[in-house]
Design a protein around this nucleic acid. Structure first.
Length: 471
DNA sequence: TGAAATGTTGGGGCG
DNA sequence: ACGCCCCAACATTTC
């Protein structure tokens, strides 16, 4: 008698190093690859528009890769993943459901409930861990509590083996006749108003795109990562965040390659660069563990004092100038426009625009996190929440509140020729290099807006606001 | 994974 | 030649 297993794909849209898929292929005669589109799940943190754009193309790529292996991706849509799975179990006669674990709080709760329901009706469930390097329960302080400081956390992680065995890509997947599904196009993931046209120049979603980018980065660019990662005009960052979020490549595949590079490379600065990249994978890990242990941290400041912080009164017009990149501060506007046009923003510039929003404009970090959530192709609840709380100074192991970036100095330091600003702010393309990062100092005709706020005054006000918390 | 204010030092102009 | 002042340049402290 033939035994069937459903492989439930979620944020693991790949064939290589996919333990759930590998398990099913190894142990079952018939493997049914499934993606369930449940757009309402996640509550107010359900996936945003840019994420959906990426998801559409990633599903297309996964379906093509599965077809290549002799199967295909069965897609269903609904409100409840549990009901969709139960229906599929009935229709296919599957005796087992396998998936790779997720760690976002709402997904954890959902998956526990589904596992209970399926197990109760005699269906075996197996969950695997490839989307993180370590289980959150496996990295705790000696007293059993979670780490709240990155350096200590990462030090503990490094006492374990960072190199972990990978699963092979299955060469052949037998799925037999699949029940009816929905074409990807019918999921409505692409925007009706085509604001996404620029995205295609920047990204190739899917496993092949992920491995191509990983190859470019880890074989070549990584040697100068330590320096170039701070230069927003340079392609010096890994640009792997969205591929990682959707699981088109596993963090351990990247970590293994980095470990390997460390052995191959002689130069001290290049080794420092590889170590730095490994630590960035560590930050991703840290963020996931923090959100897992502190599920409220996507919505509330971890530092309880910030419940009393005197944020500026809500002003939709002010927020909108920030969102649209019309603040009048060149590097801030360049970043916000890069985000809008490409679905992504360079990490250093993310810190700058976040500092500007939460400190100079004194707007609650939740407004910033929300905008990023809807506009980033790499939107990840754990990394996004940790990043915003870090910049706002209200998170665990956060930058002190008084560490306020001066976007003019930062621009001069990290975009000295103005290449990044000119790329995204065409009004300033012909502007004198000397004053590019502070165009208001040069009187002249230009349709670029005047700064919406005085950097010096707003800095002083932010510091005063923070002082009021300490009493 | 700051910035600005304040303090210190040492070379050179100048009476 | 000497002391005084100015002020980069760098270091330390404070926010």
């Amino acid at each position: 008698m033939s035994r069937s297993a459903i492989v439930w794909f979620r944020e693991d849209l790949r064939l290589h190093d996919n333990p759930a898929l590998d398990h099913a292929v190894q142990h079952f005669d018939r493997v049914i690859p499934v993606y369930l589109h449940t757009p309402q799940q996640g509550g107010h943190w359900r996936a945003g528009a840019a994420s959906h754009w990426w998801l559409h193309h990633s599903l297309k790529a996964l379906d093509a890769d599965l077809q290549q292996a002799g199967a295909g991706l069965l897609i269903r849509q609904g409100d409840s993943a549990r009901q969709l799975l139960q229906a599929l179990v009935r229709e296919t006669g599957a005796t087992s459901v396998v998936w790779n674990r997720l760690y976002t709080p709402w997904a954890v709760a959902r998956d526990i409930a589904i596992k209970t329901a399926l197990t109760g009706s005699g269906i075996a469930v197996h969950a695997f861990r490839p989307s993180l390097l370590f289980e959150p329960e496996a990295v705790l302080k000696d007293n059993g509590e979670p780490y709240r400081v990155f350096t200590a956390f990462w030090k503990r992680c490094q006492t374990k083996s960072l190199y972990q065995a990978l699963c092979d890509t299955p060469s052949r997947i037998s799925s037999g006749d699949l029940p009816h599904g929905i074409p990807i196009e019918q999921l409505g993931l692409l925007p009706a108003i085509r604001w996404d046209s620029g995205f295609y120049d920047h990204w190739t979603p899917g496993e092949q795109g992920a491995y191509a980018q990983a190859g470019i980065f880890l074989d070549e660019d990584i040697a100068d990562y330590e320096h170039n990662r701070d230069i927003p005009a340079s392609p010096g960052t890994s640009r792997l965040s969205a591929h990682l979020h959707f699981g088109e490549i596993s963090p351990r595949a990247l970590m293994n390659r980095a470990v390997q590079r460390l052995d191959e490379i002689g130069s001290a600065t290049a080794r420092q660069s590889v170590t730095r990249f490994m630590a960035e994978l560590g930050w991703r890990e840290f963020a996931a563990h923090i959100l897992y242990h502190y599920p409220a941290s996507s919505d509330e400041s971890m530092d309880a004092r910030f419940a009393y912080f005197p944020w500026a009164a809500d002003d939709a017009a002010v927020l909108q100038r920030w969102q649209q990149g019309r603040t009048g501060i060149p590097i801030i506007d360049a970043g916000m426009r890069e985000l809008w046009h490409s679905g992504w923003m360079h990490n250093r510039v993310r810190m700058l625009v976040a500092s500007f929003l939460t400190k100079n404009l004194r707007i609650h970090w939740q407004h910033g996190a929300r905008w990023f959530w809807d506009t980033l192709v790499d939107a990840d609840l754990a990394s996004n929440s940790l990043g915003w709380q870090w910049v706002a100074g209200c998170g665990t192991d956060a930058a002190p509140y008084f560490r306020i970036f001066n976007p003019v100095l930062q621009g001069k330091k990290f975009d000295p020729d103005g290449e990044y600003v000119r790329r995204w702010v065409p009004e300033l393309r012909a502007f004198d290099r000397k004053y590019l990062h502070e165009p208001w100092r040069l009187a002249g005709q230009c349709d670029y807006p005047a700064p919406m706020i005085d950097l010096k005054d707003s800095r002083a006000q932010a510091l005063a606001a923070f002082q009021s918390l300490r009493r």
